[in-house]
Structures are given as C-alpha cells and as structure tokens.
C-alpha cells in the first residue's frame, strides 16, 4: 500500500466516523438504545493510534476536534482538547496497547473512552448546567468496547487483508 493510499484510508475512516457520530436516530427510539451508540470517533482514532500512530498527528487531532465541536454544537475547543489528550495518551501507552491486541487494547479502549465521555459530560455539567444521566456516561464506553471486541478477530488474523492493507 502506498503512502497516499494509507492517508486516503485514514481520512476516509475519520470522515465516516464523523458521519456516523452525527447521524440522527429516529425520534421514537428509546433512550437505552440511543445510549448504545458507540463513540465512533474514539474507536476510529484508537484504531489508527494502535496500528499506524504516525498518521495520527497532533495537528490533525486539533483540526478534526474543531470540526467535531461544530458538528456536535459544543463549545469550540472541547473536542480538540480531548482528541489531543487521546492521541498523546495513546502514543504513551503504545507498547501496552500493541503488546496484546485482545485484552490490553480492550482495557485501553474502555478506559480512554470513559475518560473522554466523563470529561466532556463534566465540562457540560459545569459550563452549561445540564443534567447528565449516568447511563449517558457509562453506556457509550461499553458500546465502544463491544465494537472494538468485534474488530479484534479481524485485526488479529495473520492473513487478514485489512491488517495487511493498513500496515
């Protein structure tokens, strides 16, 4: 795979994750199903940090974060701050994550996603004084973990074309 193709894959997945994040659910969907929506952005960035961390530049995280701020209609800077922290923390724990695609990376996904969701909720609680339900903080990291677990067999496979493609 050429470098251009690699960047194309990277940017495409970021755009798809952003689209999935803002795609509306029907009005009549119960709250517990809404809460099962994973944090596609964390999932996508974590994947690239784990497998091609050199593509996840800090500047890219900052720019994507600003776009997410507008897409989510949240104060400018909050998502860039969280993405920067995610990339930085991910790079520091790279050896831990890469040592075991299964268990250790799942633990890292769960912790990082929970920290991102909890920090954002706390910020919104303090600045906008909105009610935060516990389920909206706890469920997205669990849903993200479930999606990550679904990805593991694909990533673990020695002959996985996907793995070959991104490496």
């Amino acid at each position: 795979m050429t470098d251009t193709q690699g960047w194309s894959y990277f940017l495409l997945t970021i755009v798809v994750a952003s689209i999935l994040s803002v795609a509306p659910m029907p009005f009549d969907v119960p709250d517990w199903i809404r809460n099962l929506k994973p944090d596609w952005i964390v999932l996508c960035w974590f994947f690239w940090i784990a497998f091609q961390h050199e593509r996840c530049s800090l500047i890219m995280a900052f720019v994507v974060g600003l776009i997410l701020d507008v897409l989510y209609d949240e104060p400018l800077g909050i998502n860039s701050l969280l993405l920067l922290a995610l990339v930085f923390a991910g790079r520091f724990s790279l050896r831990f994550i890469q040592s075991s695609v299964g268990l250790r990376s799942s633990i890292a996904v769960l912790i990082l996603c929970f920290l991102v969701t909890a920090t954002k909720s706390l910020f919104l609680l303090v600045t906008l004084d909105v009610d935060i339900h516990l389920s909206s903080v706890v469920m997205p990291p669990i849903a993200t973990l479930l999606w990550w677990v679904l990805l593991i067999p694909l990533l673990n496979s020695e002959h996985s074309q996907f793995r070959d493609a991104v490496q």
Binding site: L58, I59, A61, F62, G65, L66, D69, P75, L76, G77, I78, S80, L81, L84, A85, F88, T127
Partner: peptide, 17 residues
C-alpha cells in the same frame, strides 16, 4: 507541539464558552 495545541484548545474553550 502538544503543549502549544493544548493551550490553544483551552483558550478557545474559555473564549467560546
């Protein structure tokens, strides 16, 4: 770079909020 972008994000956040 991380520190510079981190501080920029915090400033943006403080101003926009």
């Amino acid at each position: 770079l991380f520190l510079a972008l981190f501080i920029s994000s915090v400033l943006l956040l403080a101003v926009s909020a």
